[in-house]
């Protein structure tokens, strides 16, 4: 399924670009994720607990950052597999500058498999949108105090 959308973040472009790739920030913002463990350059593993209403599932996940074009775009690949199926997301995030604010434009593809695919098609669109919204809402929240340029998080320095 194709997804796309635009979110406004109250951060300068370079700051948004950096924070959107900061594993600590990502871990905080990705729904159901507590922690990212680095397994390779720009590649992380995680445990995700996805919960929508009464439904929930545990996933072994993997996040990869690729095609980085600072400060304007990068690709975010998310994969998860669990007993109720698997999911794969591949999105291009474009960070476009305004003055004080920045637009994050994403477009990508979500694939699901297993039980989730068979029974969840009715809700795939709605819940994908909701998950992305939750991500950006959380992002806005956790980056509220990081507006001013500061040291780039350690993980991105090397």
């Amino acid at each position: 399924m194709k997804i796309n959308g635009t979110y406004l973040v109250h951060l300068p472009q370079e700051r948004a670009y950096a924070l959107l790739q900061d594993p600590e920030i990502l871990a905080k913002c990705m729904p159901g994720c507590d922690r990212l463990d680095k397994v390779a350059e720009n590649e992380y593993e995680m445990k995700m607990k996805m919960a929508i209403a009464s439904m929930s599932g545990l996933f072994d996940g993997r996040v990869k950052l690729a095609d980085q074009q600072p400060p304007s775009s990068f690709r975010l690949l998310v994969e998860g597999k669990g007993k109720i199926g698997f999911l794969k997301g591949d999105g291009l995030l474009k960070i476009e500058t305004g003055d004080e604010t920045t637009n994050v434009i994403y477009e990508g593809d979500v694939q699901i498999g297993g039980t989730m695919a068979a029974v969840g098609q009715r809700l795939l669109d709605t819940t994908s949108k909701m998950m992305i919204k939750r991500f950006f809402d959380k992002f806005a929240e956790v980056t509220r105090d990081l507006k001013t340029p500061g040291p780039v998080p350690a993980q991105l320095q090397d």
């Binding site: 009464s54 439904m55 929930s56 599932g57 007993k83 109720i84 039980t115 029974v119």
Partner: peptide, 14 residues
């Protein structure tokens, strides 16, 4: 009507 099918599909495991 919703919880039981979800549980049977193992999409929920209270």
């Amino acid at each position: 009507m919703s919880l039981i099918p979800i549980m049977k599909l193992r999409l929920a495991a209270p």
